[in-house]
Measured scan of single mutants.
Amino acid sequence: YTAFGDLEVFLHGLGLEHMTDLLKERDITLRHLLTMREDEFTKNGITSKDQQKILAALKELQ
């Protein structure tokens, strides 16, 4: 049995499950992801397509 964390649930909701391992390897938490700047997305290997999905979701949360 494995409990999913906030990061996994957030990514799954956006259809971005493939990013879970990448972000965990880089010790990026959901809190960090929510406050990242555009250059940090790129530096951490997050594609512009995935970045757009994340940023759109963040706008909806605000």
Rank of each mutant, 00 (worst) to 15 (best):
A56L: 10
H12Q: 15
H12I: 06
L33H: 00
I28F: 05
T20I: 12
D50H: 04
K53F: 03
G13A: 08
L34V: 11
S48W: 07
L11N: 00
K49D: 12
L16T: 01
G15E: 05
F10D: 05
S48R: 12
E8D: 12
K53E: 06
D6M: 00
L55Q: 14
E40G: 04
L11G: 02
D21M: 09
R26W: 00
Q52S: 09
S48T: 12
Q62I: 05
D39M: 05
D21K: 13
G13Q: 14
E60W: 15
A3R: 14
D6G: 09
L61M: 15
T20G: 08
E40D: 12
L11W: 00
Q51G: 11
T29R: 02
Q62A: 08
S48Y: 10
L34D: 02
M36C: 03
A56F: 09
G5D: 12
T20F: 11
L7F: 01
E17R: 08
M19N: 05
E38W: 00
L7S: 03
A57Y: 08
K43M: 07
Q52A: 12
T47A: 11
K24S: 07
D21S: 10
Q51K: 13
F10E: 02
A56G: 14
G13D: 13
T42H: 11
N44F: 13
T2I: 06
I46T: 02
G45Q: 04
T2R: 08
A57W: 07
T2Y: 04
I46Q: 01
G45H: 07
R26K: 13
L14S: 12
R37T: 15
H32T: 11
M19V: 13
T29K: 07
L23M: 09
E60D: 12
T42P: 09
L23N: 02
Q51R: 12
I28V: 07
G13I: 03
E38P: 14
T47K: 09
L61G: 15
K43A: 11
D39Q: 08
E38K: 09
F10Q: 03
D21T: 13
A57I: 03
K49M: 10
L33I: 06
K43V: 08
R26H: 06
L61D: 10
L30I: 09
D27R: 11
I54M: 12
I28Q: 02
H12Y: 12
G15I: 00
D50T: 02
G15V: 00
E60Y: 07
L16H: 04
H18I: 00
T42L: 10
K49G: 10
A57P: 08
H32S: 12
G15M: 01
L22F: 11
T2V: 03
T2C: 07
R37P: 10
F10A: 05
I46W: 04
N44H: 08
T42Q: 12
D39R: 06
E38F: 03
T35Q: 12
L16R: 01
D21P: 14
F4T: 14
E38R: 07
H32Q: 13
M36N: 00
A56E: 10
I46L: 04
T42G: 09
D6N: 10
L34C: 14
K53S: 07
L58A: 15
T35M: 09
E40M: 03
K24P: 02
L30W: 08
L58Y: 10
E17I: 05
R37S: 14
D6R: 06
Q51F: 07
G15S: 04
K53H: 03
L34I: 13
L22V: 13
A3K: 14
A3D: 15
L14F: 11
M19T: 05
F41Y: 10
Y1C: 14
Y1L: 10
L30S: 04
Q62H: 04
L58D: 12
K59P: 15
L23T: 03
M19K: 07
M36E: 01
E40I: 03
D39A: 07
K49Q: 10
E40K: 01
S48K: 15
D50F: 00
L61T: 15
G13Y: 05
E60V: 13
L55M: 12
A56M: 11
I54C: 07
L14M: 07
K59T: 12
Q62N: 15
E60G: 11
V9E: 15
I28M: 04
N44W: 11
K53P: 05
D50A: 05
Y1M: 13
E38D: 11
E60L: 14
K49T: 13
R26V: 00
I46P: 04
I46D: 01
K59N: 08
H12S: 15
K59H: 06
L16Q: 02
K49R: 11
D27E: 10
Q62G: 08
G45D: 04
G5M: 12
Q52P: 06
K53L: 06
Q62C: 10
L23P: 03
Q51E: 06
T47E: 14
A3L: 08
L33W: 02
E60P: 14
F41I: 06
E60R: 13
E38G: 08
D50V: 02
D27H: 11
L55D: 06
L33A: 00
T42F: 07
I46E: 02
L16S: 01
L22H: 15
G15F: 00
L14Y: 10
L55C: 08
L61I: 12
L22K: 14
D50Y: 04
F4P: 14
G13V: 04
D21I: 06
I54H: 03
N44P: 02
G5V: 07
F4H: 13
E8F: 01
L58M: 14
L30C: 05
G5H: 09
L11K: 00
E60M: 15
L34G: 08
I54S: 05
L11Q: 00
I46N: 02
D50M: 01
L22R: 14
Q52I: 10
T2H: 03
E8R: 09
L30K: 07
D21H: 13
Q62F: 08
N44V: 14
I46C: 04
T2L: 07
R26L: 00
E8G: 08
D6Y: 00
H32E: 14
S48E: 12
Q52H: 10
L61A: 14
R37G: 11
E40R: 00
H18Y: 10
E17G: 15
D39L: 05
D50P: 01
I46R: 02
G45S: 03
D6E: 13
L34A: 14
T29I: 01
T47V: 08
K43D: 09
L55W: 07
T2S: 11
L22W: 09
L22Y: 13
D21A: 11
E8Q: 09
D21C: 09
L33R: 00
H18S: 08
